[in-house]
Amino acid sequence: MSIGRTIRIYLDDGSITGIRHAEIVNWTGQAISAPRTQIKALAEWPESNKPGVYFLFGIDDASGSQALYIGEAENVLERLDQDLKGKDFWNEVVFFTSKDENLTKSHVKYLESRLVELAKSANRYVLLNGNSPQLSSLPRGDRDSMEEFIGNLRTLLGVIGHKALEPVASHEQVKEEKVLIPNPAEANASQGFTLSHKKLKANAIVNNEGIVVLQGAELSPKMTHSLAEGYKKLRQQLLDNGTIAEDNGRLFFTRDQLFTSPSQAAAIIVGYPINGRTHWLNAQGLSIKDLEEQTAP
């Protein structure tokens, strides 16, 4: 059963592009987001002069994709001053500290290691950390407390606007190409679908963000002239970054890929315009369109 949460966000200058302070009610952690241009202004925030972990967001020069660097520091502001000089790619920082004094150097090193691991697994951003930091040794109680801290951190990071730690799909719903259809009352649950085209077969999960084509899904090697130019460019981009690979003339997805709509995903797979809402079918043979009509108010 899902439980609602209350989050407060304070806009320092009344602007959504300025410094923002975010917190979850009844949690000792806190987040601050700031544009690169206002790092010096963080000196007026005691929250920034504490041990914590931070995320630098920007654009990767090599690929042009969204990039991320994750770090830790005994004093976040001092480390950010260093990153102003040493790292050029980023334009926003989001850092997390504690309202009390219970977050230590060992704690933040543990958090850094786990957060890098989660960001790699989510694979939403180009991760610019050169090496995976070693996981620091903590007593069992401290380790569990840090895992709870990470859960709240992920929530706040997403609310601020970055899903860097969120996996694009949960594979618990898909087993041996069979899908488990959740109770319609569970509005946030993912649902599994299959697209069959000639000899091709692709599995996907529909969730709150769109549709996630799962690793191993096959694609047609051909594209028709009627396929939209934007889709052609996206398909080429997925080939260039390794999301789609070729093996003896066979194209397939090497990892899960999120698409904004069922039709976009289907067109990329079959190579021509197609109505994905009618062609993605669940285990009962119902299309996404059918299910939407069943649940419509």
Score class of each variant (00 low, 15 high):
130 G>H: 11
144 D>V: 10
28 T>W: 07
211 I>M: 06
169 A>S: 09
206 V>Y: 10
44 E>F: 07
260 T>H: 06
157 L>K: 06
191 Q>F: 04
278 T>W: 02
96 F>Y: 00
61 D>V: 12
170 S>F: 10
85 K>N: 07
170 S>V: 08
198 K>M: 11
138 L>S: 01
251 L>V: 03
28 T>L: 15
5 R>P: 00
280 W>L: 02
52 G>C: 00
236 Q>E: 04
270 V>E: 03
111 L>P: 01
86 G>D: 14
150 I>C: 03
21 H>M: 06
205 I>Y: 06
257 Q>I: 02
81 D>W: 09
295 T>A: 09
3 I>T: 14
169 A>T: 07
165 L>W: 05
225 H>F: 15
226 S>G: 00
247 D>C: 05
65 S>N: 11
57 F>A: 01
78 E>H: 11
199 K>N: 14
192 G>E: 12
258 L>S: 04
263 S>T: 13
240 D>V: 14
65 S>L: 13
27 W>M: 12
172 E>G: 14
106 S>D: 15
215 Q>D: 08
243 T>E: 08
251 L>W: 09
48 S>F: 06
230 G>N: 13
119 A>R: 01
122 A>P: 05
43 A>E: 14
255 R>F: 03
145 S>E: 11
179 V>I: 08
180 L>D: 13
259 F>M: 09
209 E>Q: 14
177 E>R: 08
118 L>K: 11
244 I>A: 10
13 D>A: 12
